[in-house]
């Protein structure tokens, strides 16, 4: 595994992603759901909304880094607000 050059932050990052995927898989099995149509006027399931959240969060972090350039952890707060909005309205 040495060639993969692991670091603690990246390991934690992937652990969180893996945990999210497992959680949503379990949720999908335990509480099956029907897709719904939100403000994007596309049908989404919980998994779709997770994908939109994660992809959007990546761009939010990059935008914060490019525009603000300091206090990166605060970008995660923006992501959290974004995630709530996505799960509520999309």
């Amino acid at each position: 595994m040495a060639w993969m050059a692991w670091t603690w932050p990246t390991a934690a990052f992937f652990a969180v992603i893996a945990l999210l995927l497992v959680t949503f898989t379990v949720l999908a099995i335990k509480f099956p759901e029907t897709p719904r149509t939100g403000i994007l006027r596309i049908e989404t399931t919980r998994g779709d909304r997770l994908f939109i959240t994660l992809l959007g969060s990546a761009f939010i972090n990059l935008a914060w880094l490019g525009i603000v350039g300091a206090n990166q952890p605060f970008a995660l707060l923006v992501c959290l607000v974004y995630a709530v909005a996505v799960f509520r309205y999309v």
Binding site: M4, A5, W6, T7, T10, F13
Partner: peptide, 14 residues
Amino acid sequence: IPLMTVVNYSVQDT
């Protein structure tokens, strides 16, 4: 796995 490695490389210098 290659993608994970790329993520690891992106926060380091060698």
